[in-house]
Design a protein around this nucleic acid. Structure first.
Lengths: 287, 287
DNA sequence: CATAAAATG
DNA sequence: CATTGTATG
């Protein structure tokens, strides 16, 4: 279990010292997100570890926007303005890894790992951005190759880490609960049987990860995390649940709440994805 | 001279029946211009013949935006979203020509001619968009080739037409009066000695055209017709006079006013160029 | 329907 | 510093 003393002054945020708050959000361009009010959201939410996908900006811009209060691990894509993932944290990571697989995905900007030293135990946090992979396109093959690598890495993390958390835009809805119009999307990228099968395996006994948001939300439709910009998809909540917190079982059991920040006091949404914010109750009540 | 009877009900606008009002404006994308209020300007100004440059939109879009009250002659560039010139008029032209020179400039979207039948005499109106032609770039050669063709066509029009008017963004300032910071631009495209020499020749006795705006404004700085979007160029009136009405002498003598619509009741400018609006007093007072 | 970069001005 | 089409999502 996570040690109480080492966490207290550093990794956790002072406003909610009893829990570790981890948020994931595909910002669809961090510059656009800031123009649309992301900073106000961030100021409201007291996040300890912020995982970003589709940063779509150079490292210098990311550091300027987020400011000095974060340690920032950022993996850019070779293609400017594409992809890009980051883990921003109050505590400096003890180790970091910037990609997954071989050369082919080395500069994809789709996977970063940050290890946090919790005094005796280690928490690995991954920010992942799986390909959209339109069916029939060349990117569909990349998506399957990436999901293969992801499965291998999930297995590895599960067996070598004390606690691990893989969050991000995984670009697949797992079950019919996860897409509003699932019947109309059975042949669309993001809800293909082959893609959904990966999630069966991630969450199956052999690999052993937990879909934290689904566990806490229960057997309900959604809650969705992405809505197309087009038409009234957002207003009608015609969305997809494709952003996840996948956690190792012990960590998953410590999750006390999972909230989709669909809209709050801050005005409109700042991305086509909403943040998924989860609190992990890492401390044992001691008295 | 232009015949009074044939003009009255058709070519001229009912609001100022004694004059023919011709406006030229580089709209820098007619879609953006309409977003920024071009329609309000147009509604205020009672223009008879509207010459546009840098239309940068497909023909269907131009017709939709301008509406049914215009006859529209529009020459698109082969490259989508680039250049494009048009003559919009209340009266249908009797003849039109869509380019200048040979194949090389056939689909440049930089030159259109519309002839208006004035009952016995003819008025040719040209909307022209000369290359910007950054010094040292390949486009600089195109600019000189285009100016050569333009000179030849000016000579031809002068000798074969009753009245002719060549308006548009000619992308050259003629004299030191025509550019606010002329000293700093002696080596910049738009104020190179070679470019300015073309204008000496256009306006010289051999070719014989008149710079209507300069003639009416007198020997003053400006009035400028273009200001960079950058910095405070517009607020400081740090502009260039690169949009012209060039007219055959008899027509030029009939010009009663030349106004740069730098800003009016309509709010901000709708392009980096301002419209240049000239009234031609085509009717002889008969009584 | 939105993002970012590229080319052009 | 603004416009456009393009690729990508």
């Amino acid at each position: 279990m996570v040690d109480r003393v080492s966490l207290a002054p550093t990794l956790r945020h002072s406003k909610h010292p009893e829990a570790l708050r981890v948020a994931t959000v595909n910002v669809n361009g961090i510059r656009a997100a800031y123009r649309r009010g992301m900073q106000e959201w961030l100021a409201d939410r007291n996040v300890d570890i912020l995982c970003l996908q589709e940063v779509r900006a150079p490292d210098s811009v990311v550091r300027e926007l987020l400011g000095d209060s974060w340690h920032i691990l950022h993996s850019e894509a070779a293609a400017k303005g594409r992809a890009g993932v980051a883990v921003a944290s109050r505590l400096a990571p003890s180790e970091t890894r910037e990609h997954i697989g071989d050369e082919y995905f080395a500069s994809a900007g789709r996977w970063v790992e940050a290890d946090f030293d919790l005094g005796g135990s280690t928490l690995s946090v991954v920010s992942a951005y799986v390909h959209s992979g339109e069916a029939g396109s060349p990117q569909q093959d990349d998506k399957y190759r990436f999901l293969d690598l992801m499965k291998a890495r999930l297995t590895e993390l599960r067996s070598t880490r004390d606690h691990a958390l893989v969050v991000g835009d995984l670009n697949v809805g797992h079950t019919t609960r996860d897409i509003r119009n699932w019947k109309g999307n059975l042949k669309k990228a993001g809800f293909l049987p082959e893609e959904r099968a990966y999630f069966d395996s991630f969450l199956g006994d052999a690999v052993g990860w937990v879909d934290v948001h689904r566990d806490l939300a229960g057997d309900v439709d959604g809650p969705y995390t992405w809505w197309s910009w087009r038409g009234k998809a957002f207003d009608n909540d015609a969305g997809w649940r494709i952003d996840y917190h996948l956690a190792t079982p012990e960590l998953a059991a410590a999750a006390t709440s999972a909230v989709v920040d669909r809209a709050h006091s801050w005005e409109a949404r700042f991305s086509d994805h909403a943040p998924l914010v989860v609190d992990y109750q890492l401390l044992q009540p001691q008295d």
